[in-house]
Design a protein around this nucleic acid. Structure first.
Lengths: 145, 145
DNA sequence: TGCATCATGTCAGCATTCTGACATAAGCTT
DNA sequence: AAGCTTATGTCAGAATGCTGACATGATGCA
């Protein structure tokens, strides 16, 4: 097909939008002492307390190993806590500390503002359809052809 | 606002779609001996031959330093070539070799199929609007508020 | 009951990418 | 002409994330 304009490629624009979001979030989160993956992890824990390391990894789209070091950082900073021994199996259920919930709430305000800047380019109905389409595209790729 | 469902967050779905695309592309490109950033670099060079290291870095959304090591790999593999001395200033214009163009063409077929799997969840008019919206969102974030 | 399979947490090693810094070259201002 | 600003390529070091591997605990099956 020999595409002449990269700007019409969905893969390129997807990467571009994601890169812009990541850079903007990193900038906004730095004053809170968080990176974007750390923020994503805390947000997961807010919505689903008690998630294990492996479950968090899948939710943040990194490997278990990466999530492990990320969690240690959050634990050392006192933002999350894990029991020393597993209540069942090997999974250690992780929870936000009070300090973690506080930091997350402050950071979330900034992140929400960024997401609003993104969706402001469309009307609300378009924005909702857009998110639905994003999810459908991810599903289409995750399902083997 | 306290969002209860991560699936409705545009940031989450954007990350999810990008992660799925990246993983699928990595898998499809491995048989060609390419990573996704390397493929993106070759594609840039196909559309705009003679791009410098710094220009390529911006196009692929990595730093100059990362693009530098990436380019050395492609150069060593014989897929791209750069003059030993800069014709003007310090910028070294990079071009695809014949082998590079050949590898890229073969890889591009697979990548195009992947992009088609993504857009197949919408009708063509929706897909075009979707790409336009992605670009608008990236612009909204790149422009200081 | 045994045993195979799977998921989890974790260690080690490596690849990738980043931040910080420096020297060089071009363009612009004065 | 001289100096300031910007852009580029590159080096060094560190952070981040990944692959491979292993032991442990749960689960399902013969």
């Amino acid at each position: 097909m020999m595409q002449q304009d990269l700007g019409r490629s969905i893969g390129y624009q997807l990467k571009r939008a994601q890169a812009a979001l990541r850079a903007t979030m990193d900038g906004a989160l730095r004053p809170h002492g968080l990176t974007t993956p750390q923020y994503s992890c805390l947000e997961q824990l807010r919505l689903r307390p008690g998630l294990s390391n492996a479950e968090l990894a899948r939710g943040v789209f990194v490997t278990r190993q990466s999530m492990n070091v990320l969690l240690r950082g959050l634990e050392e900073a006192g933002l999350v806590e894990r029991p020393a021994t597993a209540p069942s199996g090997r999974a250690l259920p992780t929870r936000l500390t009070e300090a973690g919930a506080r930091v997350l709430a402050a950071a979330k305000a900034d992140v929400s503002a960024i997401e609003h800047r993104m969706t402001a380019v469309m009307d609300p109905a378009q924005a909702q359809a857009f998110v639905t389409q994003l999810a459908a595209m991810a599903d289409a790729l995750s399902t083997p052809p």
